[in-house]
Design a protein around this nucleic acid. Sequence first.
DNA 1: ACAAAACTTTTAGTGACTACAACTTTTGAG
DNA 2: CTCAAAAGTTGTAGTCACTAAAAGTTTTGT
Lengths: 215, 215
Amino acid sequence: MADGQTETPPPGRRERKKRELRNHISGVATRLFLERGFEGVTVAEIAETADVSTMTVFNHFPRKENLFLDRGPEITELLTAAVRDREQDEPPLAALRRMSLRLIDERHPLSGLVDGMGRFLQVVLDSPALSSRWREMNEEATTALAETLALAAGRPPYDPETRYTAATVQTIRDTLFREAARRTSAGETAEAVHGDLRALADRLFDALERGVGAG
Amino acid sequence: MADGQTETPPPGRRERKKRELRNHISGVATRLFLERGFEGVTVAEIAETADVSTMTVFNHFPRKENLFLDRGPEITELLTAAVRDREQDEPPLAALRRMSLRLIDERHPLSGLVDGMGRFLQVVLDSPALSSRWREMNEEATTALAETLALAAGRPPYDPETRYTAATVQTIRDTLFREAARRTSAGETAEAVHGDLRALADRLFDALERGVGAG
DNA sequence: ACAAAACTTTTAGTGACTACAACTTTTGAG
DNA sequence: CTCAAAAGTTGTAGTCACTAAAAGTTTTGT
């Protein structure tokens, strides 16, 4: 299955080392941020600790915030894929609800149901720059979802009511994440929160669907 | 009615001059931003043009973004006052809807129904920093509204479902503003957009109320 | 008139981020 | 294997938002 060479460079060593270095830098940065907060660590210090130059950090992460928050594209992908890849006869909002419940059941990090997520969220909320980047990621996801929903419903791409629906789905996701992170950080275990979170998700999606139909 | 002295300093000259200087600086800055975009103007240049020192600019506006976006508190105040000062028997969401329609009917700047709002929004959307501040203002308003709604409904101050309602009200407000600014900047007059915007507001509030009840 | 309070200014940083040139490593072709 | 191009890293020298602190100026109340 695996070819076991160690000396010959199989096309892709550059890329692999690049990924590894990126992970290394982001790992070092994340650890420092969790320990001392976002503003308490300078990029120069991260570079020093990771044993690279400051410029290298910026080569891999154009903004300091990206060192801590780099799952933005993943959120966007989850939301749009849920709508795009659903069965023909399933309404978009039903697919989005299913996907949200699946994240919760799988204790996916983006559901917030992971130990340590409380500290993570606290670091974000304590930092204006990270909070800002958090909202920016949410908006990117909202815009992408609005486009996908418009496409699925055969509406014009900038329809305000479609955007309303997309923004509200994002509100639900954000509400669920914060609730999960808040309660797990308050000492409750992920297991204890799981049931309540699921019920909350259902209630919020119910409210949205009563408002706009099946979407 | 007015005491007409010009030489004697009636307690408040300092405050008046301060307000005037603040307005002067923000006016100069706004003009420059509209002409050349947010990133195209440095704070030093604004200070120079306004004939003050750079530090004075920062004394009046702690962030550069505040020079262009300083109506955040006003939004918060409008939303919370609508709920706080409503008649006892009026549901909170009905009061918020009335307030939104009133802004539209009065062509209030925060409704977006003002000539030149298109260019304003374009400058905001063209600048990452201003877009970020815009979202931050929205979040402040959302948090304040959530607290007020929770109080009005006798719920705990951090109730996730109340926050969902507040966030959705904000989504409606933001959607309406963008739609108004987009269409007036596309050449339509505020009068032509007014009727459509009112109807859109009603539809969005209908959707929200169907979902969560009268709030 | 005078002292305290409130502003403004100057000075001297810090820290994120950029442009650019020099240097090193990896890759692919001959 | 060799070598040149491509990709990546590094150091240098900025720019710009923003801060801290001290000194100078104007306004205010007595």
